[in-house]
């Protein structure tokens, strides 16, 4: 087995795991009961799934500029997915679709109402 075979095999394993995680994310989107629990499914397994797919594709192509493009995709995924989930969650929170905070931790003082 040469190094390219090893890289191909690792790439295939990454692609497979990434696809499984994306599948789990979509099952979570269907099964979870409300907006905020669905945001969990849409952010975490989704991010790692996409990162693993990108890693798998990178291991199988191995050309400099393509790897650069893949790194760019990974970077923007990591930057935009939390921000997007935050926007959706906040919109639901502020329009009253979600119950207000039921556990307050560490708010030691409230500012006087001005």
């Amino acid at each position: 087995m040469s190094w390219t075979d090893v890289a191909d095999l690792l790439g295939l394993v990454c692609l497979f795991l990434g696809a499984l995680l994306c599948l789990a994310a979509s099952i979570g989107l269907l099964r979870f009961p409300d907006l905020l629990t669905r945001m969990h499914a849409g952010t975490k397994p989704q991010v790692l799934g996409v990162l693993l797919v990108i890693l798998g594709v990178g291991l199988r192509t191995r050309s400099g500029l393509d790897v650069g493009m893949l790194l760019l995709i990974a970077l923007f995924q990591l930057l935009t997915i939390p921000a997007g989930a935050h926007m959706v969650g906040r919109a639901g929170f502020r329009t009253g679709q979600v119950a207000p905070a039921d556990i307050h931790l560490g708010r030691r003082h409230r500012r006087p109402e001005a």
Partner: peptide, 17 residues
């Protein structure tokens, strides 16, 4: 989270804090 999504049983819930 992937396990919570696919495990059998009632769906998981959470709280806002």
């Amino acid at each position: 989270v992937a396990w919570l999504a696919v495990r059998p049983g009632p769906p998981v819930r959470g709280v806002v804090l």
